[in-house]
């Protein structure tokens, strides 16, 4: 059982390593955020879950930590994505469509006409 927990922790650290590689390889801010959020959430979750399996009397605190990471990590990535769209960070050339920009432009034109 303890060996199983240790292997889960190792799997979590491998996922964190994938997150780091993705952070370097992806072309623009939004793709980095995508890779970073998903993989780092799952990596931390698995690492702490492995510790909780090895040492079950600490499970309460570890569960609180896991829930905390699971709730706050998507919120912070959402806030960062919104800020980077607001200050016009350069978007990758491979982007197909940007509906938010189109909507913003229509909104501004409508305001000018009023």
């Amino acid at each position: 059982m303890e060996l199983f927990g240790a292997l889960i922790t190792l799997l979590g650290s491998i996922i964190l390593l994938i997150a780091a590689i993705g952070l370097v390889r992806m072309p623009d801010v939004y793709n980095r955020l995508q890779v970073g959020t998903k993989a780092s959430t799952m990596g931390t979750l698995l690492s702490l879950l492995g510790i909780a399996i090895i040492h079950p009397t600490w499970a309460g605190k570890l569960i609180i930590l896991i829930l905390f990471v699971l709730f706050t990590n998507p919120v912070s990535s959402h806030v960062l994505a919104r800020a980077s769209h607001y200050i016009n960070i350069r978007i990758s050339k491979r982007t197909v469509v940007d509906k938010l920009k189109v909507t913003d432009r229509a909104f501004k034109v409508g305001e000018v006409k009023k």
Binding site: I15, P27, V35, A39, V97
Partner: peptide, 20 residues
């Protein structure tokens, strides 16, 4: 989603087609 992320990150051609 994590399997998907691992596939996209480790593939040599970066199979992405992003948009909003």
């Amino acid at each position: 989603s994590n399997i998907d992320v691992a596939r996209r990150v480790l593939a040599p051609t970066r199979p992405i087609n992003p948009g909003i």
